[in-house]
Computed example of a mutant assay.
Amino acid sequence: MLAQNGIPTPEDIAEVLPPAERLAKGPVAIAECFQNIPCDPCYHSCKQGAIKEFTDINQRPQIDFDKCNGCGSCMSRCPGLAIFVVDATFSEQEALVKIPYEFLPIPQVGETVTAINRAGQAVGEARVVKVQNSKVQDRTAVVWLAVAKDLMMEVRHFKTKEVR
């Protein structure tokens, strides 16, 4: 239970996931923000208008999945690192998961990392496809991971194999 251990329940997660039809169309953002807190930078950063306007600064973000193109501009603006982009169309066997990352060392393209789920458990391996880390992102890199398709909705973090 989220309030006791910080891990969202399957019901919590189901509330924020895009429908299967939308996942089949390409990259889309998922806001796994499960608490009502005063925060709205994601709304202001979305140039597509995909994050619905907040009626109360404390409400959780709501994504209009039909407007979202998966650009990820909201990811590096989220102070809680709670927004991810998934792309089920990346390849036949793999999906792409874009993860906000604020640790060092930043992984290198081509590196194999350990894929971690929401509970902090290793669930497999992932390959680093791309790393975005510009000044506009304010020191929040976005790491693109290729993962097995069945892990697309599980992988929400990673750890590097070794410290450089």
Rank of each mutant, 00 (worst) to 15 (best):
L2H: 04
Q4P: 00
N5Q: 01
I7F: 02
I7Q: 05
I7L: 01
T9N: 00
T9S: 14
D12E: 06
I13Y: 09
A14V: 08
V16Q: 04
L17K: 04
L17Q: 13
R22L: 11
R22W: 14
K25L: 14
K25A: 14
P27I: 13
V28W: 04
A29G: 15
I30Q: 00
C33L: 08
C33F: 07
F34C: 07
N36G: 08
I37G: 03
C39A: 06
C39P: 03
D40L: 08
P41F: 07
P41M: 07
C42K: 01
H44D: 05
K47E: 14
Q48I: 01
G49N: 09
K52M: 03
D56M: 02
I57P: 00
N58D: 05
N58E: 11
R60N: 05
R60M: 14
D64Y: 12
D64L: 11
F65H: 07
F65G: 10
D66R: 07
K67H: 05
N69H: 07
N69C: 08
N69L: 10
G70K: 08
G72K: 03
G72E: 00
C74T: 09
C74Y: 04
M75C: 02
M75G: 00
S76C: 07
S76E: 11
G80N: 08
A82T: 13
A82M: 09
A82V: 13
I83C: 00
I83F: 00
F84K: 08
V86G: 10
D87M: 11
D87Y: 04
D87L: 10
D87W: 06
A88R: 02
Q93C: 07
Q93M: 11
E94T: 14
L96P: 07
L96G: 04
K98R: 15
K98C: 08
I99L: 14
Y101I: 13
P107N: 12
P107A: 11
P107G: 09
Q108G: 05
E111N: 01
E111C: 12
T112R: 06
V113S: 06
I116G: 01
R118A: 15
G120D: 06
G120K: 02
Q121A: 12
Q121F: 10
V123H: 03
V123D: 03
R127D: 09
R127G: 04
V128C: 11
V129M: 05
V129S: 01
K130M: 10
V131F: 00
V131E: 00
N133E: 12
N133Y: 13
S134F: 13
V136L: 12
V136P: 03
A141P: 03
A146G: 10
A146L: 10
A146S: 15
V147M: 10
A148Y: 00
A148S: 11
D150E: 14
L151A: 14
M153R: 15
M153I: 15
E154C: 13
E154Q: 15
E154G: 13
V155K: 02
R156I: 15
K161L: 11
E162S: 13
V163L: 01
V163Y: 02
R164W: 02
